[in-house]
Structures are given as C-alpha cells and as structure tokens.
C-alpha cells in the first residue's frame, strides 16, 4: 500500500539536486536518446547499455535515491514484462537468425534472438524508469515547470501561451503528491471496509479499484474547483507579466555534469554512425578475437 512514493521529489541537498533543472531535462533527453541508439551486435549493445546502467546507478547513489524505491516501482511492471516476453518469444520474426534456435515447442522453434530482443527492451524500460526517477526525485515540481517554461520561451514569438501551459503543468505537478496522499487516505478508508488491494481475483480487484477511483475523482474535481476559485479571488491573470522568486542559474557544476553526459551521448552517437558503415563494431570480437556468442 505504500509503493506510491515512486519518483516523488525527495528534498535532499546533493550536488545532483543542485543542478540547474533546465540542464537536467536536457541531459535526461540525451541519455534517453543514447539508450535507443543500438548497434548491430547484441553483445556490444548490451555492454553499452550496461555502461549507462552503471552510470545511472552511480548517479542514484550520489543523489541518495533508494534502490528499494526503484525495485518497488519495477515490481509493478512485472505483468508488462511477461507480456513483452511472450510476444517476442512466440511471434515469429523474420529478422531472427534461423540458426539460433534455442529449443522447440512442438514444431515451433524458439529463437535465442527473441530472448535477447525482449531482454533488451525490458532493460531499456528499466533504464528509462531510472532516468525519470532521478529527474523527478532530485528536482522539485516547481523547478521542473520553470525549466519547461524556459524551453517554451521561443514559442512565445509565435503567440504560443507558454506561461499558461507552464502554469497548467505546474498545477498538475503540484497536485501529484496531494493526489497520492489522497489515494492513500482513501485506500485506508476502504481497507477499513474490508477491501483488500493486494489480493483477490480479477473481479475483486476491479471492484477495489473502482472504490478508489471514484472518490479520487470526486475529490480531485472539488479540489480543482476550490483552487480555481482561490486563484481568481486573488486576482490571477494569466496574461500578466510576472516576476520570479527563484532565478534559475547555470553553475560550473552544471557544465561539468553536462560534459559527462554529453560525452556519453557523443560516444554512443559515434559508435552508431560508424557501425555497419565503416567498420563492424563488436567489442567481444575485438577484445577476445573470438566469434561472439550472440
């Protein structure tokens, strides 16, 4: 019942927390793109993504994110993972190497490549979760929206209502912890009426979820009404020019962090471009001089 804390901002004061949120968002994008740059050889791809994994683990340690929280959030995805596995293993794919049959189920040969493929996808999914988790646990929702608004500033030239979008976003983000608290409150209340959110068959579970969702909607709607009234009462004007309590600053440490992430990204990009065109990149082959296992 307490695994709702995933990705919630935890206000430590580490060097990752102190980085400029604009920089953090940009670095996050670079890392996400890096994850999706795949080279032809499986072994090399896995080594590369493993490298990013290690990097993220170090960042998580520095920013004091608990691995337990990561496991908790991943444990809610096991269903997705199984479905992915099944799809990849049992749906024939012409790009799989026909010599890589692992075993037969009846006459259908299950290909090793299917396992690599699905394992790789799941691995990337985990990395994505880690990246977003690092961003949201080390950056306050307010800072995130400031950063997003900053990125949208050029759009103001084409009359894009950047501020309104940012305000909407910031309210939405601001409400996430409130709604999580509310969710927990309602879960406890329904548990007092004998609802078991962790066990029971499909039918029971759907009932449990309904008993949670409806009160949650009712309270969210009434909250949003209260908030809009309160904002109006205090004279909120979306088109007014506004000043800022906290000004975002790009520090030396930001430059440093950016160089690290930028280097990772550049490295990945280079490998991706070289792969196949100029030379075939296969670390295992280079290092051991042997034909790769996969």
């Amino acid at each position: 019942m307490n695994n709702l804390t995933f990705g919630r901002y935890s206000p430590f004061n580490t060097c990752v927390h102190r980085l400029d949120p604009r920089n953090k968002i940009f670095m996050m994008l670079l890392l996400m793109v890096s994850i999706f740059l795949k080279v032809d050889s499986w072994s090399t791809t896995l080594i590369l993504t493993g490298f990013i994994f290690l990097f993220l683990v170090i960042v998580m340690i520095i920013s004091k994110i608990r691995f337990l929280d990561l496991f908790k959030s991943l444990s809610t995805m096991w269903f997705l993972i199984i479905i992915l596995m099944v799809i990849y293993v049992f749906i024939p794919n012409p790009s799989y190497n026909p010599n890589h049959i692992a075993f037969y189920i009846g006459t259908y040969g299950v290909n090793y490549d299917a396992f690599y493929q699905s394992g790789y996808i799941i691995f990337r999914l985990i990395l994505m979760v880690m990246i977003t988790m690092i961003l949201t646990s080390t950056t306050s929702p307010m800072d995130l929206t400031y950063a997003l608004e900053w990125y949208m500033t050029p759009l103001k030239l084409v009359k894009f209502p950047a501020h309104i979008v940012a305000m909407t976003l910031s309210i939405a983000l601001r409400f996430i912890p409130t709604l999580l608290d509310e969710t927990q409150r309602i879960m406890k209340a329904q548990a007092s009426r004998g609802v078991d959110f962790n066990r029971g068959g499909l039918f029971k579970r759907v009932g449990a979820i309904i008993s949670l969702i409806i009160p949650l909607f009712v309270s969210a709607i009434s909250r949003s009404e209260e908030l809009s009234n309160a904002m109006e009462a205090r004279g909120y004007d979306p088109y007014a020019k506004r000043s800022r309590y906290r000004v975002l600053k790009f520090h030396l440490s930001d430059l440093f962090a950016f160089i690290i992430v930028g280097a990772i990204f550049a490295g990945f990009l280079t490998l991706r471009i070289y792969d196949g065109y100029i030379i075939k990149i296969d670390f295992i082959y280079w290092i051991f001089g042997a034909k790769p296992l996969f």
């Binding site: 409150r185 309602i186 329904q190 007092s192 309904i210 008993s211 009160p215 009712v218």
Partner: peptide, 10 residues
C-alpha cells in the same frame, strides 16, 4: 471511521 468519511462514498 476516518475524518470526513463522506469522501469515500462511491
């Protein structure tokens, strides 16, 4: 019976 239990009706 929690505080403001009316919010758990559905």
């Amino acid at each position: 019976v929690f505080q403001f239990p009316e919010y758990q009706l559905f």
